[in-house]
Design a protein around this nucleic acid. Structure first.
Lengths: 200, 200
DNA sequence: GCCTTTTGACTAACTGGTTAGTAAGTACTG
DNA sequence: CAGTACTTACTAACCAGTTAGTCAAAAGGC
């Protein structure tokens, strides 16, 4: 399309992945989606494995950009903005197929060191960003300074990943997280003038 | 082995699943693991899909039994016992392969209604048991009666699933959950004589 | 002898990857 | 500018390997 065959193929991979899932993703599917022949895909990327590794790099850039797009006047608002992007946003059925395919890839990580290394970077980026927001909140005296930013960021990361997994496997809407998540932030993270502590 | 070919095949399926993973699980693998021929597997279970559906039923019984094995003198101890079983226990590398295979199955749920229905039962059983424990804790005045048992059980379920996903995909040890999880239970669930509230 | 269980041999479908070859554009050379 | 060499992009045809599922025949128990 845009006179860049390599990029075309990556975009076609994205579409084919959503349409067929990772387990059933064939070079032929990608070829069909890119209006090229199967051999052309091999010509540009060699093996299927090499293509997919390049695709994960391409996804990583999108992922970090999405996370960086979160913003807010205060650390608390920044945090909520990030949660919006990661939890309430991917409810759309269009992105649901993508979430499913990503979970398939995650499940393949233990069988493929290269994939696992790349997924670790995804995970670390999110966790690091969360930690930075929490540290900023503490510094601004908006968050409780007794909170350990690393532990709390790790906890939030686990919750987010759990929501994604349950959404894919049992169709559990991430909206259910809204109340307990807000409560957790309110009670744990915020620098409470010790007035009230409303539980879930 | 035990003069019950059907059961033998299910156990062989378990072993083959751990050894090869779900994506690479073939009837031939199961046959090899059961010391039977491929055709014999088909004779007893028909299609691969039917076999795997029966295998999930078999797993469900094990899963619920494992959850029911949790116990404690008080609801709080009961809850910690259950978390022990679900989080700190599956660290052993033997069970790690199994966790990985299960995540592969979870990722296939959206493509197979039958699998998804079965996985929903797994999820619901855990969430229901957690809810029952929380309700018992409230009734015993050990837990805060302002907590909504359904919401809290759902939150805990999501956290547990998130820990499993991260353990498989990025080798993240569930032990990291210990501190924030204990804090959450302490601060949220427990009926605090409003003395102290130590965050993470 | 009959009914269940088991098996080896086979097939149809599909997959990743290879190869020989085409077409079009670019760079170099005299 | 004409001709040649080289490169990029692409393709149809093909290959080797794998897999779920079938089937007729053999083995085993009662």
């Amino acid at each position: 399309m845009e006179d860049n065959p390599m990029a075309d193929i990556l975009e076609a991979t994205h579409r084919a992945l959503c349409r067929h899932g990772y387990a059933d993703l064939t070079i032929q599917d990608i070829a069909a989606e890119s209006a090229k022949s199967k051999a052309t895909i091999h010509y540009h990327y060699g093996t299927k494995e090499a293509l997919f590794s390049a695709f994960l790099d391409y996804l990583y850039d999108q992922y970090t950009a999405q996370i960086d797009a979160a913003s807010g006047e205060t650390p608390l608002k920044h945090l909520h903005s990030l949660l919006d992007i990661l939890l309430w946003n991917p409810t759309e059925p269009a992105k649901q197929a993508f979430q499913t395919a990503i979970l398939e890839v995650k499940a393949q990580a233990p069988y493929d060191d290269s994939v696992q290394e790349q997924l670790i970077e995804f995970d670390a980026y999110l966790s690091d960003r969360l930690q930075a927001i929490i540290e900023a909140g503490i510094q601004a005296r908006e968050f409780n300074d007794e909170v350990d930013p690393s532990t709390a960021a790790d906890f939030l990361t686990t919750i987010i990943k759990g929501a994604h997994t349950r959404q894919v496997t049992v169709n559990h809407p991430p909206e259910h997280l809204s109340v307990p998540m807000t409560d957790y932030i309110q009670t744990y993270l915020l620098a409470n003038d010790p007035a009230e502590a409303p539980p879930a």
